[in-house]
Structure formats: C-alpha cells, structure tokens
Design a protein around this nucleic acid. Sequence first.
DNA 1: TTTTATCTACCTATCAATAGATAGATAAAT
DNA 2: ATTTATCTATCTATTGATAGGTAGATAAAA
Lengths: 184, 184
Amino acid sequence: MITKQTNDRLSSILDVAESHIRRGGFNAVSFRDIATAVGIKSSSVHYHFPHKHDLGKAVVERYAINFVEVLGSPINSLETPTMRIERLGAAYSGSLAQDGAICLACVLGAESAGLPEEVNGAVIAFFKQLLQWTEEALTGAQGPAADASYIISAMQGAMVLSIALNDPRKLEEAVTRLVRFIEV
Amino acid sequence: MITKQTNDRLSSILDVAESHIRRGGFNAVSFRDIATAVGIKSSSVHYHFPHKHDLGKAVVERYAINFVEVLGSPINSLETPTMRIERLGAAYSGSLAQDGAICLACVLGAESAGLPEEVNGAVIAFFKQLLQWTEEALTGAQGPAADASYIISAMQGAMVLSIALNDPRKLEEAVTRLVRFIEV
DNA sequence: TTTTATCTACCTATCAATAGATAGATAAAT
DNA sequence: ATTTATCTATCTATTGATAGGTAGATAAAA
C-alpha cells in the first residue's frame, strides 16, 4: 500500500526533478540534487526510481496528466474554438508566470535527440496528446491560425523566446495574435 | 600567427561541439568527446577554450555569424517581405534537413536558465540579431503573421515539434502558413 | 650564422568533484 | 514474517580542469 507520506515524498521528488528539468534540461537534474532538496539520501531516490530514465519518464507523465487536467475537455458546446485556444494560451502563460520556467515539453522536445528513449517516448506521447486536444478544440474553426500543429508550435516557440529574452510578453502577444486569427 | 591547420582544428572542435549541442543541449558535449572525435586530447581542447563556457560562447557566435551570412541582407529592393520570410523559412528548413538537428538557438534558448551566463549572453545576442533581421525584412508588411517575434517563435516552435515527432513537414507547413499570411 | 628566447599547439599525467548505481543494514508498518 | 522506505557505505565512470613537459616554428640578439 502506498501511504500518504510516501505519496508526499514521491511528489516532492517529482516536483524537484520537474523544476530542475524545466530550467536546464534533462541533464540539469541529479539524484544528489534531488535528494538534498527533498531531505533524503540519493540512494533513497534510486529506491523510488531505479534509473534516471524512470524518473524522467515519471516526471513527463505526471506533467502530461496535470496539463490536460488543467485544460479540461476540448469539447464544450458552450465555447467557441477561439475561447478554447484562449484557454490553452492561458495555460501556457500561467505556467510560465507561475513557475518562471518553460514548458517541460519545450525543453525536452528541444533536446529530444539526446534523451533516453523511455523519456523521449513520454515526450512524444505528450505532444500527440496536446495536438489531439487542440485539433478537437478547433473543430469547425477556420482562418490563418486554425491548425493544431501551428498553434502548438507558435506557443511553444514564443515560450522559448520569452524565457531566453526574459520577456513574458512575447508569449502573451503570440497568444493574442493566434486567437485573433481563428474564425468560427 | 594562426596557421591554416590551426584554423582547421579550431573549426573541427567547433563543428563537433555544435553538432553535439544541437542534438542534446549544452551538457551533451564533453571535452573528451570532442577530443576523441577530432583526434586530439582533451587537454588540447582546453588549450583552445580554457573553460567550457568559452567553447559554448564560441559555438554560438560562429553559428550566429554563419546564420546571418546565409540569410543575406533583409533589405533588398527586388524582394517583397513575403519573399524574405520565405528565405528565412528556407534557412530553417534547410538547416533541419541538412544537419538533421534543431537550430542551436532553439536548444540553448530552451535551457536558457541553466546555461553559464557567458553562453546565455551569446544566445540572447543571437536572438536579438535574428529579430532585427526579421523586423527589417518585414518593413511595410501587414497581415496576421507580420510580426518578427511571432514569426521567429512559430518557426522555432515548429522546428522543435518536427524534431520531437520526427516529422520535418511540421516545420515546412508552419513556414507555408506564415508566408501565406503576410501581406504587402 | 649561430644562439637565445618566445610562442604555438599539442602531449602525459593527474586532480577533485560529481555522476548514476548498487549492496547490505535497519526500523517501522502491515 | 514480510514489505516498505529509508539509511550507510561504496563502486566505477566521467566530468571539467590543471600542471608540467615537448617538438617545431618564429624571431630577435650575439
């Protein structure tokens, strides 16, 4: 059985790992860093995640579940596609503003070719999930920006630019522009 | 005096470093890997680049010079803004197709928060240069996509998606869409 | 012309630090 | 009694970095 405390500890480990990865990529985490931050020993982190790729995969999978949960369903008859993409944009902006760090998929997608395949697989799955959500959200939409890949690309790219240039408005402006050019 | 051979060796070091960074980020390079690939010892790499951030900075700076050179001038009276952005898109697509690797700025921009400041500074400078080029190229242009930050974001993001999903068409489609929605 | 000095570009050897990983002990919980 | 979650202790490999040496080119001084 998994106790409450164990769950907390697991969460803490994943929290620290996610935070480090989102700031500096997969190689920016080490078992020791995590252990120190959480207050345990590195061998205890290995107990929960035998290999580093187990940890990486778990971080990505939790992130994916959480992201989709925050987004909610893309099929909501009370909303227009524009409103849904606005919601997606808000999730991106919020994540940047709240954590001061880029989206996990941005970092890991960028260093995709250097990742363990277990981690890369999880990243790919997340991207596909994200694309599917956006496609469904766009049902019936038209206009210069009404394409799932295009929207995800633009938002992720704007996020990178925002982080690199330390200017959150890059992302906000991109979202505004995207939303403006979706027609119902 | 810098001999021809020295120049070749320096180039080789930078070549290998760039290739590794573009595949897996800044931490995917090591002095030993480079040395082995080039055929010298790691201490010799240190001779040319005392610290790792010196190497990183040099890689970014060479990349920036090369990229702008490939692009050519953004101000060319024979071209429309659309044609210029098409040229930018071709540079991105070509770089992906030719090297099978993402743009250097995409990777380093994404892990920006984890980079040595010397390297990060060079990345920021490159981004600014790229934005300025695009702004100049857009002179007089209008339409849903006529914004430098937006165009760079969309292209970089599409590049990440292309690499992560192993589908170069993501980038090509994004470029097509961007170009289509620039009006003169 | 020969000697002396300096510089370049590499080498060997080595360092301390850190990486991921494992074995075995322990104590608490089930 | 067994499982869970942690510990201590340790391993091997790799990291970035440095010290000290050397062959060859260049250049200035004797």
